[in-house]
Design a protein around this nucleic acid. Structure first.
Lengths: 154, 154
DNA sequence: TATTGTTATACTCTATAACTATA
DNA sequence: TATAGTTATAGAGTATAACAATA
């Protein structure tokens, strides 16, 4: 941040590495049944919003259509979601969560939340307060940024 | 957020998803030359600590030895690091950063820091302060947690 | 012609198991 | 026998390009 010829401002990069490690840590703490973060996000969305078009899912999750095709295929193979025809538009495919998918999602979500909490509990009180402000705020601007970029030529 | 029979405590999971997206976002904002977060972390460590054994690198970065072998191979192919024999122990391999690796690392690190900063600038002042406390704190406990788990049967 | 979805292909990151060479 | 490293194999997650079916 101030002076230094060689390895000066490392902070941004360290934070990214740390966050990546954190995602990995929490991910690994909740994979007994093998539900990845990506799969969990899709199940959560389908659970909240009901069946969605594959293309809608891809856009909502910020990934490419082929990526979502593959993810849905893996999840379908695992019995977590179901594809069905869209009556209105026969090009389309509706993706819906199965009861098994919903159950597994709840289990894993709870495990993930516990893993995150056990990390946060290691912090001091002021740090904990900071985390509870910072993380949702970051989540918010990430979402906003993604939407803006999307409407600008994605 | 309070009560609710069905989808109660979503917060932990949403944060993880948001953090994953954030890592992806910052990663993508700095990939013109194709330097992944994992590669960046290795280059940074080698730059700070000098040449390291492959096994030390793997342990320090919290990944498996084959993983590090492959990462180093990719990086060597890209001219970013160099393998050399360890004179003391002929089983070992020392990995050192090349000048090109160091240069590229600095560029990408700066880009990554900018991407992170441009996210943080979208926040309110109190939120920004929270982020600057929360992220380093989280980075710290993640590192500690990893070390503890390692010494307990990894 | 444009949209939806899939297939083909490729790359990174990750792991475990089996192997080689050295200690 | 134990350690360092590699190779073999596998799978998730990601992308772009090319294609088929439908609108």
């Amino acid at each position: 941040m101030h002076s230094g010829t060689a390895d000066a401002d490392d902070s941004g990069d360290r934070l990214i590495v740390a966050l990546e490690r954190m995602v990995r840590h929490v991910r690994e703490s909740a994979r007994s049944g093998g539900l990845s973060v990506a799969a969990s996000a899709v199940l959560g969305r389908l659970g909240r919003e009901g069946p969605l078009r594959l293309s809608e899912l891809a856009r909502a999750e910020g990934v490419s259509q082929p990526n979502m095709t593959q993810l849905v295929t893996r999840m379908e193979r695992a019995g977590l979601v179901r594809r069905s025809a869209d009556a209105d538009d026969r090009r389309g495919v509706l993706v819906g969560v199965t009861p098994a998918g919903r159950d597994l999602f709840r289990e894993r979500r709870a495990e993930r939340a516990l893993a995150l909490e056990s990390l946060v509990r290691e912090l001091g009180e002021a740090e904990q307060r900071a985390v509870r402000v910072a993380l949702p705020a970051l989540a918010r601007v990430i979402e906003e940024t993604r939407v803006i970029e999307e409407n600008r030529g994605g």
